[in-house]
Write a protein that binds this DNA or RNA. Sequence first.
DNA 1: ACCAATTTTTAGATTTGTCTAAAAAATAAT
DNA 2: ATTATTTTTTAGACAAATCTAAAAATTGGT
Lengths: 230, 230
Amino acid sequence: MTNKNVFLEKSYMTRSEENYIKTIFHLGGNTTTLISTNAIAEQMETKPSSVTDMSKKLAEKGLVHYKRYQGVTLTKLGVKAALSIIRKHRLWEVFLVEKLDFTWDEVHEVAEQLEHIKSEKLIDQIDALLGYPKYDPHGDPIPSKDGEFLERDKQLLSDMPKQSLGVCVGVKDTSPTFLKFLDKNQIALGNTIKVLDIEDFDQSLSILVNNKKLNISHQIASNLYVKKQN
Amino acid sequence: MTNKNVFLEKSYMTRSEENYIKTIFHLGGNTTTLISTNAIAEQMETKPSSVTDMSKKLAEKGLVHYKRYQGVTLTKLGVKAALSIIRKHRLWEVFLVEKLDFTWDEVHEVAEQLEHIKSEKLIDQIDALLGYPKYDPHGDPIPSKDGEFLERDKQLLSDMPKQSLGVCVGVKDTSPTFLKFLDKNQIALGNTIKVLDIEDFDQSLSILVNNKKLNISHQIASNLYVKKQN
DNA sequence: ACCAATTTTTAGATTTGTCTAAAAAATAAT
DNA sequence: ATTATTTTTTAGACAAATCTAAAAATTGGT
């Protein structure tokens, strides 16, 4: 009934620990760059003092390298843990969209919960059920069981030249507000986008999607990833 | 990232609170029978003092009626909460078996985690995906969204007379050990069972399943539910 | 009705994860 | 290079959920 002997699995991580590891990864902590206490605190909407406490704890467990007053980076073990959580998160997102008719702006919140479920068989079977997808509904790559994943060949729409052609392959901002805006304007992954013109004054773009002309701000264009077509 | 503003839903219940409510329900707390502190503690493998603390907390929240030194029963609200959790648990069990090839002895542990996921849309869509099942893999009824469920017409195999015929519709003990025993002997829900003989000495039964004769102890028979055939 | 045994509650401590406020270190500015 | 600012850490406190040990209430036996 209670979660006692249930989680004898490998090295048990609490939900909180998992969230820290995931955040550090997303802030670039899998490289040699030290991630600052403040950056983590801001991202997680918590206080720097809490981050310090957790950094020590994660260092104890061998998940991060922690240098006082400098910040943290993930150890190999930490990267592995992060990829495992991200894999789960993204697979659940695909599941929600593909099997349960969730829209791409609804999936994040629920996946934040589902990613913490402990069962290797569960996530492997979900993976199989979905046909081993390589990308989640926002175009982000899904790490394989052993942590491999391919970042897609992509660039921001805002970096494309006039008259160029691209296929929408992902979003940078995954907030419901932005995703709903895209839905409203019928912009979806897979769509071909042609850059008709770029306004000198404010870098806003005139684009062609679904055979319709559309004007979008620079801010929109700088949150949309496309794959350039030759 | 952290679970802060995420759960603005109705009256938020912690995982621990949900587990207590569920246990109280299973111990019969939806009737007028007061459930004792000790009974709850034993079932949850925790200490009576912890149960007392939680009972007060649940009473505060209007989920149980709590009488000092007497025990608790669920309020209407408590019953509703319990049924909601049980509904989730059992739907997830069906999902695991039907869609992810889990065996019936593997589902409980994972469902214990999944039942705490907060998303009404999620569970309703799972329900739809499964075709609104009425029973879980152990034969237990699944409450509908509004808390209705039909207990099946069933009786223990050990209460059946000699030469009678029944269809296996559920198990009382749902432990992996027992379920694996049933698998090994090819006893599954839906099987027709004929009671050939009952041994006077130890109440062990000689039964016919899948056209095979089998001897089972009284303890086995008293954990198998059948629907009597006329 | 009384004593003994059991059950339940209280009181105080512990762990995890968080916070605030103050101190210490690092960085930036003149 | 010294001061000011920012960042980070420490110290101490708090809430949730648990525990142990002791006290209080209930139940059972004679």
